[in-house]
């Protein structure tokens, strides 16, 4: 286990470092001077120099990179080129939208996908087994933003039961209003995520159903239900846990896109605005936070999988 932890931690740190390098390099080395964002049309060379000094892009690339790393270490992500506000607080201000959206959608998707996926595998011979498969197959092909658009048309514009988008300007001051504006986005992300999770859960359950130990448990007198509960589900949980971590990361990314559909002031809309305005510090900051979240969640999922499965633990010890 310790060997595995060391290796996995090295991969995590390596990818975090690589993310920082990639974020720095791609935005610095590609054509286009970030200073242009600060300058009026037809700026004089003096103005250009001043803008570069202000951004720090007049220094050499290695020293720019070091100061970018040092800034990350101090949790200082620089200032927006457009609003001149610090990027760090701007990101934290948007977490109360993105974090509840991601977590609620994820929990909802898991609550739907696990029972439905097990059912689809255990009752593959009944009529609803194939139906569940067909619906899940359809679900993974539906783009989240389109589903969101359809839900808006149905529930907000036609039935007028929920807001079509936006978020209360004073945030969670009125929890009822805030919740209302998150219902449709949550539903959108959760449905799309549930579709792909159902397929994983079903595959894992099918593998377990064909396993020798389940037959042995049945031969020793356990009922189908008892064998499934005591032996089946625990084994099926192992691959599902690792997938769930990946899916949590994907849910987060889904939320990033769906926020734009519902005009929610979250991380995703901040990123999209940053990209369209060429606001490099904002892009870097949001990308860094997003990538780091995805990487850390993946790390935790892999480690949790090792902890749950004694076979993997033993294999890595040898």
């Amino acid at each position: 286990m310790s060997h595995y932890l060391v290796r996995r931690t090295a991969i995590l740190l390596g990818s975090l470092f690589l993310a920082a390098v990639a974020l720095f390099a791609l935005l610095r080395l590609l054509p286009g001077d970030p200073a242009n964002a600060l300058l009026p049309v037809g700026a004089t060379p003096d103005q250009i120099d001043a803008a570069r000094r202000e951004l720090g892009t007049d220094a050499s690339l290695p020293s720019q990179f070091l100061s970018w790393l040092a800034g990350i270490a101090r949790l200082d992500l620089g200032k927006s080129l457009i609003s001149t506000l610090p990027v760090g607080p701007e990101i934290t201000a948007r977490l109360p939208v993105t974090v509840p959206l991601t977590l609620t959608a994820f929990v909802l998707a898991v609550l739907v996908a696990v029972p439905v996926g097990v059912l689809a595998a255990a009752r593959a011979d009944r009529w609803y087994g194939p139906v569940i498969n067909a619906v899940a197959q359809l679900g993974i092909a539906v783009p989240a933003f389109w589903l969101g658009l359809l839900l808006i048309a149905g529930f907000a514009l036609n039935l007028h039961v929920l807001p079509a988008g936006g978020f209360p300007p004073d945030g969670w001051a009125d929890p009822g209003l805030a919740l209302q504006s998150l219902i449709l986005p949550c539903l959108t992300v959760a449905l799309v995520m549930a579709a792909s999770m159902i397929r994983y859960v079903r595959a894992a359950t099918l593998d377990v159903l064909g396993a020798d130990y389940l037959r042995t448990a049945r031969a020793l007198g356990a009922g189908a239900r008892e064998a499934m509960w005591r032996h089946g589900l625990r084994n099926a949980a192992v691959p599902v846990i690792a997938v769930l971590a990946m899916e949590l990361a994907t849910t987060f990314l889904g939320a990033v896109v769906v926020e734009s559909v519902f005009a929610l002031p979250g991380l995703g809309s901040l990123l999209v605005r940053g990209i369209s305005q060429h606001d490099y510090p904002v892009i870097q900051g949001v990308m860094l936070v997003s990538t780091a979240t995805v990487l850390v969640v993946g790390f935790l999922g892999d480690v949790a999988q090792r902890l749950v499965d004694p076979r993997l633990r033993l294999r890595s010890a040898s």
Binding site: I11, G14, A22, L26, L253, I275, I283, L295
Partner: peptide, 24 residues
């Protein structure tokens, strides 16, 4: 092996957005 593990950890959509941010 480690390099591929690192590369695969980057989500497709974020990578694509990053490249679009730089290259237009």
């Amino acid at each position: 092996a480690v390099t591929l593990d690192i590369l695969i950890a980057f989500p497709t959509l974020l990578l694509a957005m990053l490249i679009v941010a730089g290259a237009g």
